[in-house]
Every structure is written in structure tokens, then in C-alpha cells.
Design a protein around this nucleic acid. Sequence first.
DNA 1: ATGAAAGCGCTAACAT
DNA 2: ATGTTAGCGCTTTCAT
Lengths: 363, 363
Amino acid sequence: MTIIFLLDKLDIVKRLTYVMSITIKDVANKAGVSIATVSLILSNNERISTETKRRVLKAVKELDYHPSRSARRLVANVTGNIGFILTDDHFLKTEPFYTRIFLGTEFATRENEYYVLLATVDTNFKEGDSLPQFIQERSVDGIIIAGKVPNALINNLDKYHIPIVFVDYYPPKGDYSVVMIDNIKGGMSATQHLIEYNHRNIAFVGADIMHPSISYRLYGYKQALQNAGINIREEFINTEGTYPNRQCGYSAVKKLFERNKDITAVFACNDAMAIGVMQYCVDNGIKIPDDISLIGFDDVEADLLLNPSLTTIRVPKVEMGIEAMNLIVSVIKNKLCQSTKKIVVPVELIVRKSTMRIENIEL
Amino acid sequence: MTIIFLLDKLDIVKRLTYVMSITIKDVANKAGVSIATVSLILSNNERISTETKRRVLKAVKELDYHPSRSARRLVANVTGNIGFILTDDHFLKTEPFYTRIFLGTEFATRENEYYVLLATVDTNFKEGDSLPQFIQERSVDGIIIAGKVPNALINNLDKYHIPIVFVDYYPPKGDYSVVMIDNIKGGMSATQHLIEYNHRNIAFVGADIMHPSISYRLYGYKQALQNAGINIREEFINTEGTYPNRQCGYSAVKKLFERNKDITAVFACNDAMAIGVMQYCVDNGIKIPDDISLIGFDDVEADLLLNPSLTTIRVPKVEMGIEAMNLIVSVIKNKLCQSTKKIVVPVELIVRKSTMRIENIEL
DNA sequence: ATGAAAGCGCTAACAT
DNA sequence: ATGTTAGCGCTTTCAT
């Protein structure tokens, strides 16, 4: 009696002070059962009587008990963490693209028992460079890699045999589970939209053609032209730059416009490059959409005061993060079945003010 | 002999496959000591002989042993995590300000034993809303709060008695440890720079005057004017908006310019608002710096193709993150000594092309 | 200077 | 249906 009273007293103290944490013992004491019973009930029911379960869950609630992660992980021999790796320039870039994907992984953790650890790596990661600390310490059960990363990083990572899922990129070699944008479809939709608006001389502004996303967008562009019976003119395509950002969009469209006077529309392989195109047009007195129609890709929704607002292909960024998280979890769970899985997320044409229907010149 | 041989064999297998993790036992076996000795050595020397230490550290290295975090945390009754909380709009905003601060905390973890867990909260967090999961589960030993967050969040958080450090913001009530920018000094430097360039009619573009950073920048502005013997003209100050972003900068400067024709320079309370000011000038044929000198604050280094480049006050964002991390760690360590600590990080004037010396009109 | 052993909170056999 | 108990990897007395 006295003992029970004291224990109850202790619970109250613990709860009020929040200084000592409530353990499974406290719950067991309060509910008058063994810790095994509590554990059984918490690891989602067994053959435990409804009445006991009720009492235990009541105690859990009243004590605001949360199992110790450290203890659970120790027993299960897991870390309970997922590593999220991307290059620093991707994390710090102006458009919140990868930050949204990261946020998606965060959201998805609410449904499973993982925490997400973020680490950036240098864009110029070399073979000998040190890996993120959580890799060295083997503190993650799986890794999500977002966006293009150096091959040297992937090679180093592979040695650890930690499950990896790629988002919005996959390396040239190897067979990995990935979450990808439907880039071909997006490239086609963008181009078809311009074709529907009667444009025939459509330029493609890209960069880094080795990037699978960009090459697929270009492929979609070509496909759409072919389907419409329009000749592909290589002089309308510029993919010279190495990194698809604003500066690069600016200089790419500069070259295209200086060499070709008959372009009426531009498909930029992402919004960043499209903004570069816009900037060039502003600087050169070219009116969008009156003189040139412009479509981007990504829908980065940047707080940009963009004028005119940019027609683009929307990419579900947060959803990609969620998918990546779910995928890495399933890869970890079914570790034996080594078959890799590809998830393709759909895109959507968002028509705003930067594209305009022109008169059909082919009458 | 056979046993030792087998154990050695096992080590090799473990290392090669990376599938079973190396434990303290493996190290102890390899070095021919007890696990207690290994532990002692790893928890930074005791009275262990140099020779034994050498052997053990050699084994640690050869096996690439990393102590299990879960086990360590379980024993120490700590979580080993720091929570990083900010509002979603801060995390997703165009300028990589808070992402840099976050990155700073990441960098700082390399020197201490913590991992950082990030969570965003809704900008309109209300009293009843649920807190980040790692708070509910008490999986963090401390919290870093970056940027302005709703008071309701802080109130809810306080109940958990988890140490908190604020960065770039602190709540109106309460006494917390904080890492702040030297906003007054920055506001003064910015204004002094314009005064040195012979500007006398200097406008202040701000918002959300309840934000301590902004009110201090304004205070610095006024201080500099007073020091120079220039009258403070309230009609040159606009702080009407609620959130200091581009749109708000645009509309604030619009009002200022429409009502005052004699303004020759603008001090925007941050770069985002300064960019809004730039946009307004472009749209209205006002040349920067010829017609108007413009200075911002933050130095967000956005990939913006800003033309002209923006004179601003540089804020050491990554360093602030590092400071915040070190501060929260010291708060956790010295939990008994409850004195709060304020760290003020210095700022620096960065002169670029958006400010210009004008003729001294007061001759 | 080093080892034996208890115990952190939990899970999962194995008992009952 | 519920309890007993071993042990996950580590730290930390307490012995020796």
C-alpha cells in the first residue's frame, strides 16, 4: 500500500517536473501489470485482454508516456535515423526546391518511426573527402540523396552498404531505387502548350545535358515537336552551360536570340533558367509574352514579383519527399528483396501570363 | 588460440561486410583488454597506461569502431539531439538566410556529440496545435529557435522545460539565451554610409516594428541621423507592413516616394525589402544609384542577377548557427546555473553599386 | 592500471 | 493472458 502510494507520488512528481522521464516501469506500476505486458500492448496488440489493454493505455495517456527511442533502438539494433544528403548549393539555392523535398521527408516521418538527419556535401566532393558524420558513425538506417551529387560521393557511400534512395536524380551507373519527376511528360506538355498557342519556332534553353532530368525534358521537347510534325532545329537548342541557373539561362538565351531572329517561344528546362531568360528580355527590351512566349519547369513559387507570372510545369516537391521517405523505409524493411523500385511523380501544366497565343503563321 | 583466431576472423568479416556492427567487445578482444578499459580510454583517458591505450586505439582504428549512440544515450539518459525549429515560411523563403543558420548548427555538431533535428511550424501556430514530434517524444536535449515564431509556440514549449536558445529573435516576454545580430550597429553603419555619401533625406523602409531586429535597425538609423545632426523626419519612415518581404518593400517605398519627392537614399531593413524597392524603381524609371541610393541589410547573397549589385550590411549567418549550437550545448551542460546568456554577432558594411556619393547640397 | 558486474529502458523469447 | 528474464552496447562504480 505504502509502496504503491509512493510510486503514484513519484509519477506525479515526474510529470510535473518533466525532469525525470516516465519509463515503462511507471506505466506498468500504474496499470498494475508487468512491463512485458505494457511492451506487448504498445507494440500493437497481441493476445492481451481488452480490459488490461484499456487500463494500460489509460496509464500511458495519464502519464504522457513515450517509449525511450534509445532503448528501443538498442534492442532492435537500428538507429532510427534516415540521412538526407544534398550538395550545399542545392540546399542554399534561391528557389526553395530541395528544401521542399526535405520538408516532405519531414512530414512523412510522422507516419513512421524515423528522424531525418540532414547533411550537405561540397559540390566538388572528391574521392578522399570525408563523408557526413552520421555516415561515419553509422547512425542512419538509410539514405535519401536529393538532386545531382558527385559520383565520388556515391562511390564512397556504396561501401557502407546502407540502403539509398535517390530523388530527382540518379547516377549514371548502378541500379538504385529512385523517385523521379515525369520529365518526358513534362517536357512534352510544355512544348505542346506552346504548339497549341501556334508557336513553331520554339527554343530549348538547358544546361548540363548529362543530367537525366534535363535530357529527358529535352527528349520530351523533341518528341512533342515530332508529334506535331515540326522539324527539330538544333540551332534552337542550347545546353552549353554546366549548371542550370539564372546566369546560365541569361547567357544561353542571349546566344540563341543573337543567332536566330525567328524564335517566338522559349522552353526553359527549369524556372531558374526561365528567370534568366526573363532578365535578358527585360535588359533587351523584349516583351514577354508579346514578343516571346516563355515557359519554365518546376514551379518554384519563389517570392519573385515575377512580371509577367511564369507559365510552368508544376512539380510536386513535398510529395516527392514523402515518396522518397516511404520508399527508403520500405527498402529498409524488405532488405532481403533487393529489387529496386522507381517511382515517377506526375507533373502538371500551370498556365500563367508568360505564354501567349499567336496568329497561325502557317495559313 | 583458436578462439582468438576465430574472433579475428569475425572482425574481418564484420569489417568487410559492414553488416554487423563492430562493438566495444570486438575492440576489447582485439586489444586483449576488457570492455571497461576500452570505454575508459574512449571517454578520454583516465589513469590507463600509455601502452594499453596505444594498443586499444590501434584496434579502434583498425576496426573502424564507432560507439553505438543508442547505447551511450541510454546509459547517459540523454537523447543526443538538438531540435531546430522555425516557421515554414522562414525555411522556404527565397533568400537562404535561415537555411544558412541551420547549416551553421550542422557544422557545429562536428565538434560535439549532437545531431540536429529540424522541424517547421505553421506561421499561424495556435495554442492547441501540436508541437514537433521530437518535442512530444522528448527526443531532444535542447531547442534552437530561429527567427520570429508565434508566442503560442513558445508558451507551449516552455511547459516541457527543455533548454531553449533563440537566434535572430527573442520573444517579448521571458528571459532566454539568445544569439543576436548587432542590429543597432548595423543600422547605424548603413545610415552613416549614406550620410558619408552626402545624403540627408534618407528614408527607412521597414515592417513589423514589433520585431526586435527591425526596431533596433530603425533605432540605429535614428541614432546615426542624430549623431550627424540631421533631423529625423517621421514621414521618411515606413514600417506599415507586417512581414518584411519584397512585396512589402515595394509598397512601402511606393508610399514614401509618392508622398516625398526629396528622398535621395533608402535604407531598407533587409535585403528582401531592398529588392522590392529595386523592383519599384525599375517599374517607375527610377535609376539606382543615380537617382536613389539604396542599402539593404543581411547580405543574403541570393543568386539574383541584381542590377546594380546591392550595398548592404553583412550578417554572419553560418557563424550565428555555430554560436547558437555552442550556446545550447553550454546551456545543457551547465543546467544548474540558470543565468541566460546573450551573444551578439558583429556585422559589416559591404559597399557595392547601389549607393552613390552625391554632391553636398548644403554648401 | 585493469577487470567484473550492475544497470540504463526496452523487446522478445520462454514460462506459467 | 500475463509474468519472468536475458540481453542489446555501453558507462561506471567497486574490486583487485
